[in-house]
Design a protein around this nucleic acid. Structure first.
Length: 437
DNA sequence: AGCACA
C-alpha cells in the first residue's frame, strides 16, 4: 500500500537522533539563534543553518540523544511553538546522526568574499558595477573576476572580515540593483561566500581585475589596445579617463543650485575638497574635487542623470574633468576650498577619505521630499536630498552590530544597502529621486 | 514547512 512510510521524507515520526532538523526558519537565521533555541534542553555541540534551497532550514546537534529527545518532547506538547525571531519553526529528528563538516572555508569569515554572479547576462556585469555595489560597505581594496564552472565569479577584498561580513549579510542572495545595469541586462543575483584568500594578487588594472589601493598600477596592455574594454562601460559606451575631479552640468535648473547644495549632495560619497562653479553657455557647471579617483567614480555612477530636486529639477550630468587639483583663488559663493579650515563653515565632513562611503551618509536630510510646489519657505528651494541617505536604515529598535555599518539587514526582503535600493524609488524615502527624464 | 560537500 502507498502508505506514508513509503515516503520517508514525510513521516511524522523519525527515529530519534542527536541531530534535529528545523524548517521554516527566517531567511538569515544565525548559528547563535539556533544555539539559543536549543540551549534550554542541553548542550548544542554543532549547528548548520541556511541549508536547503530557500536557506530556511537548519540542523542542531546535541551532545546527548536525551537532550534532543527533551527538545522534541517539549515542543510536541507545548502550546507555544518553537520560534526564531517570532517565526514558528518546525522541528523533528534528522535522518542523519551527526552534522558533518560544518565549517568549510566558505563558512569561515575572512576579508575576501567569493561572489558568484548568477543570471543570463552575469558576465556583462562590469567590475565597476561590482565595485560600486560593494563599496557601500567599506573601502574595497581589490577585485578580481574570472570564469569558472560555477559561472562568472569575483573575489572582493575588504580591509577586514567584519566589513566583508556586513557586505555578505546584506548582499547574499540579492540582485544587483536594476539601475546599476543597463536596461537590456537581465537580473543578476549575487551568491556570496567567504574566500580563503586574504590578499589578492593584482598585477594590472584591467577589465578583469583592479587594485583600488594602487591606482597607479600599470594598466594591462590587453585592456588598452585592441578591444579597449577597460574604457568601455556596460552599455559599451566609451568612458573618459577617470579623475578625482568631476565636471557637473545642471540641466532644467528651476531652482538655484548653490555651493552648499552641491557640497551636501556630493559629500554623501566622500569628503569634498573643492568646488568651483561657473557658467558655460548660460548653463551652470561645477567642478567637484575629491581626494581620490575612487570616490569620484562612486559619486559619478550614483549621481549621473539624477535630479537634485524632486520632479526632475536640476538634473545632474557628470563627466570626469581633466583637472586633478582645482586652484581656488577665493572662497565665495561660487568657489570654495574645503580643505582650508574655516570656522564659519557649516556641514563639516568626517575625514574618512573615501574609506566608508556609507559612513558619510550621515546627513539628516532624510525626511520629507519637498515637492516643488510645497516649499516651506517661499524664497527657499526645496530641500535637496543627500545622495545615499541614512533614512535607509529601517526604523527598527535594533542594536547596531558594529560601529561602522549603518545597514541593518531588514527582517524581510527588499532593500539592499542604504541608498542602493533607495535611489530608484523602490520604496522607502528615496534620498535621490531618479527621474530618468 | 520537509534533510546538508557546494
Amino acid at each position: 500500500m502507498a502508505s506514508l512510510s513509503s515516503q520517508p521524507q514525510f513521516r511524522y515520526t523519525q527515529p530519534p537522533s542527536k541531530v534535529l532538523h528545523l524548517r521554516n526558519l527566517p531567511w538569515e537565521c544565525t548559528e547563535e539563534e539556533l544555539i539559543e533555541l536549543g540551549k534550554p534542553f542541553g548542550k548544542v555541540v554543532n549547528t548548520k543553518c541556511n541549508v536547503g534551497a530557500n536557506r530556511n532550514q537548519a540542523f542542531i546537534e546535541f551532545a546527548d540523544l536525551n537532550q534532543a529527545i527533551a527538545m522534541i518532547s517539549y515542543y510536541a506538547s507545548s502550546s507555544e511553538p518553537a520560534q526564531v525571531r517570532g517565526k514558528t519553526v518546525y522541528l523533528q529528528y534528522s535522518n542523519r546522526q551527526e552534522i558533518v563538516n560544518n565549517k568549510t572555508t566558505a563558512d569561515i569569515a575572512g576579508n575576501v568574499l567569493l561572489v558568484t554572479i548568477e543570471g543570463q547576462d552575469a558576465r556583462l556585469v562590469s567590475i565597476d558595477v561590482l565595485h560600486l555595489v560593494f563599496s557601500a560597505f567599506g573601502f574595497v581594496h581589490k577585485i578580481t573576476t574570472f570564469e569558472k564552472t560555477a559561472g562568472f565569479q569575483a573575489l572582493v577584498q575588504f580591509s577586514d572580515a567584519e566589513t566583508a561580513t556586513s557586505a555578505k549579510n546584506a548582499l547574499d542572495g540579492r540582485i544587483i540593483p536594476r539601475y546599476l545595469l543597463s536596461e537590456n541586462i537581465s537580473p543578476c543575483t549575487l551568491r556570496i561566500t567567504y574566500s580563503a584568500h586574504t590578499d589578492l594578487s593584482v598585477k594590472f588594472q584591467s577589465h578583469r581585475s583592479r587594485d583600488y589601493t594602487n591606482p597607479y598600477l600599470p594598466v594591462a596592455p590587453s585592456a588598452i589596445d585592441g578591444s579597449n574594454q577597460f574604457n568601455l562601460g556596460l552599455d559599451g559606451k566609451k568612458l573618459e579617463p577617470e579623475s578625482n575631479v568631476l565636471l557637473a552640468s545642471i540641466e532644467n535648473m528651476q531652482y538655484a543650485v548653490t555651493l552648499d547644495v552641491l557640497h551636501m549632495v556630493f559629500s554623501a560619497f566622500g569628503p569634498v575638497q573643492k568646488i568651483a562653479m561657473f557658467d558655460k553657455n548660460g548653463a551652470l557647471q561645477a567642478l567637484i574635487q575629491y581626494p581620490d579617483v575612487q570616490t569620484a567614480i562612486v559619486a559619478k555612477e550614483a549621481l549621473e542623470g539624477h535630479c537634485i530636486y524632486d520632479g526632475g529639477f536640476c538634473k545632474l550630468h557628470l563627466s570626469y574633468s581633466r583637472h586633478t587639483d582645482l586652484s581656488i583663488k577665493v572662497n565665495n559663493d561660487r568657489s570654495r576650498d574645503y580643505t582650508i579650515p574655516n570656522p564659519a563653515m557649516v556641514n563639516p565632513q568626517p575625514s574618512v577619505l573615501g574609506q566608508q562611503p556609507v559612513q558619510t551618509m550621515g546627513h539628516q536630510y532624510n525626511g520629507t521630499q519637498y515637492a516643488p510646489g510645497v516649499q516651506q519657505q517661499p524664497t527657499m528651494p526645496p530641500q535637496p536630498s543627500a545622495g545615499w541617505g541614512s533614512s535607509a536604515v529601517p526604523p527598527m529598535p535594533q542594536p547596531m552590530m558594529n560601529n561602522h555599518n549603518p545597514y541593518i539587514p531588514p527582517a524581510s526582503m527588499p532593500q539592499m544597502t542604504p541608498g542602493m535600493m533607495q535611489m530608484p524609488g523602490q520604496g522607502g524615502i528615496p534620498p535621490f529621486r531618479p527621474t530618468y527624464m
